[in-house]
Design a protein around this nucleic acid. Sequence first.
DNA 1: AATTGTGAGTAAGTGTTACTTACTAAAGTG
DNA 2: CACTTTAGTAAGTAACACTTACTCACAATT
Lengths: 197, 197
Amino acid sequence: MKHKGKTNPPGRIKIMKSFSNLMAQKDFHSITTAEIASNALVTEGLIYKYFKDKKDLLYQVLNEHFFEFQAKIENRVANEKTCIEQLEVVIFSSLESYADNRIFSRILLLEVRNSLEFFDSCAYDMVRKYSRTILDIIKNGIQTGELKSDINALILRKVILGAIEHACLGEIIFGKELDIDEVSTGIANIVFNGAKA
Amino acid sequence: MKHKGKTNPPGRIKIMKSFSNLMAQKDFHSITTAEIASNALVTEGLIYKYFKDKKDLLYQVLNEHFFEFQAKIENRVANEKTCIEQLEVVIFSSLESYADNRIFSRILLLEVRNSLEFFDSCAYDMVRKYSRTILDIIKNGIQTGELKSDINALILRKVILGAIEHACLGEIIFGKELDIDEVSTGIANIVFNGAKA
DNA sequence: AATTGTGAGTAAGTGTTACTTACTAAAGTG
DNA sequence: CACTTTAGTAAGTAACACTTACTCACAATT
């Protein structure tokens, strides 16, 4: 994921790398531009040559992470045949990615949402793509008769996405360990079979 | 919800009111303390007599909103008998509250999460209480046999809470209208009966 | 070979902002 | 009355995100 097809000079890479490292240590607001620059061994002004502002830097770093995430999911989904198996793989892989990459998850679930700019950013395009993937699987499942015909595809997606995100929040916020197998089969069990006795 | 049981002087009320109004117009970060003070017709310094910092002001305003929300939910839940009806009422009422009170929802779902301080605040205590209410209903439902005995109560709560929150996000972010009846029965249908044919 | 243009990077600001300090003035209270 | 507490003010200040105006290297064009 290059930035707008042009060159990718060393200064730009160093800034993104420096920012990524800092994000592992503290939250967005408490990272200063001075800090980013000094850790990257460049001057503060250079940040603004490559990034519109501090938030833009955040979005671009997020986007890089998301790119890998999306590739992994699509790959795995392609290996499954039934709609249910595909959705199970989406749930499992999402939880796994969140657990494996806490910085990325923290940014996505906590740090970018407070500004509406995010939803216009390139990073949010990746979220849309991921979200679209899930919707397509569901619609297909309804058509083949694997899923009930009376369920609303959009709402099922909301339930699945919501469950995934909510499951990760506790881990991110309080550092609780997440049993990926247990939680992902638990979610799948409820969503597919229902909770009512 | 008074602050720490003490008095509630006019200056404090004016500041909270002013901040609330501003939150209806723009997001937290773009509201300045100067603006809050001038709209409240007090000096900037007074804000820091009553609030630790700008975030503390945010949390206390949120807390007031949450207090009413929680009272409404508990009232309605008490009127229902079966566990399923109670959970349906939780889902419906939550969606309704979010839709009726967009500022409150925006703060809760988008603006407070980026700082870990929130999770130590009095406002988060209210979230815990709400969350606890749901868990109790679920546990009770499992015991009475209304819900399947093999489902994990904590995970079912995650699914329900996640679905509610995710359903509101679109509305908050993009201003889409939310059909509360459709979405709440849709969520309940999936969660209780399952999506698998 | 000289000129021009451009991308990478720097140095030194500047306005704004959240927050602090040190101070009144009045109202309780023993 | 003396003294503490409460409500509020006025005038800062340090830190921060971001800007401006510049240099230098090196291609490409004339």
